[in-house]
C-alpha cells in the first residue's frame, strides 16, 4: 500500500523531543536505582537455595574426592563379602580340636590320677574302723547307763531302804 500525500504530510510532522534536562536526571536515577537494588539483594538474609548453591559451589573441588572415597568403600565392602565364604565358617562356629602333644599329655595325666586313686583306696579302708566293728548300742536310756558317781548334785541320793 503506497502512502498518499496526506500520509506523507502527517509523517513529516516532527515528534516532540523530551526536555533536555530530563536526560541527565533520568539516567542518573536509573544508575542510582540499579546499584542499590544490587546492594539490597546482597544484604538480604540468604535463602536456603542460596546457601546450598554457595556451599556446593565452594565444595566443588572436594566433591570428586568424596565420590571416589565412597566408591572405594563400596568396592571394599563388596570384595569382603565375596572373600568371607572362602574362609569357611566364622571363628566362633569352629569346634576346638587339641593338638597331638596336648592330647598325649592329657592321657598321661588321666592315667596318673587313676593310678593314684586305685593305690590309696586300701589304706583308707584299714585306717578307719568299719561300722560293723562298733559295739551295738544298748536299748536302755542313756541315763541308766551312766555310773552312779556321775549323778546330778541337786538330785537326792536314793535311800537304802
Amino acid at each position: 500500500m503506497k502512502p498518499d500525500d496526506f500520509e506523507n504530510t502527517l509523517a513529516r510532522v516532527p515528534l516532540r523531543r523530551p526536555p533536555a534536562d530530563w536526560r541527565a536526571a533520568i539516567l542518573a536515577t536509573a544508575r542510582q536505582v540499579a546499584i542499590p537494588s544490587r546492594q539490597v539483594r546482597t544484604n538480604h538474609p540468604p535463602s536456603l537455595r542460596g546457601i546450598l548453591e554457595n556451599w556446593i559451589h565452594r565444595l566443588a573441588t572436594p566433591w570428586p574426592a568424596l565420590a571416589a572415597t565412597a566408591a572405594c568403600s563400596l568396592l571394599l565392602n563388596g570384595a569382603a563379602q565375596t572373600i568371607s565364604p572362602a574362609l569357611g565358617t566364622p571363628p566362633q562356629a569352629v569346634s576346638w580340636q587339641p593338638g597331638q602333644s596336648m592330647a598325649e599329655a592329657l592321657r598321661q595325666h588321666r592315667s596318673q590320677v587313676l593310678a593314684l586313686v586305685s593305690s590309696e583306696e586300701p589304706e583308707l579302708e584299714s585306717a578307719s574302723p568299719s561300722p560293723a566293728s562298733n559295739p551295738p548300742a544298748s536299748n536302755k536310756p542313756r541315763s541308766q547307763n551312766r555310773p552312779a558317781d556321775h549323778r546330778h548334785p541337786a538330785q537326792p541320793a536314793p535311800s537304802p531302804a
Binding site: R16, R17, W22, R23, L27, R31
Partner: peptide, 17 residues
C-alpha cells in the same frame, strides 16, 4: 552508563512521543 546514554539518545524521542 554509556550504553544507557546511547539508548537514551537513540530512542528517547520516539519513546516519549
Amino acid at each position: 552508563g554509556d550504553t544507557l546514554e546511547r539508548l537514551y539518545d537513540a530512542h528517547a524521542t520516539s519513546l516519549y512521543a
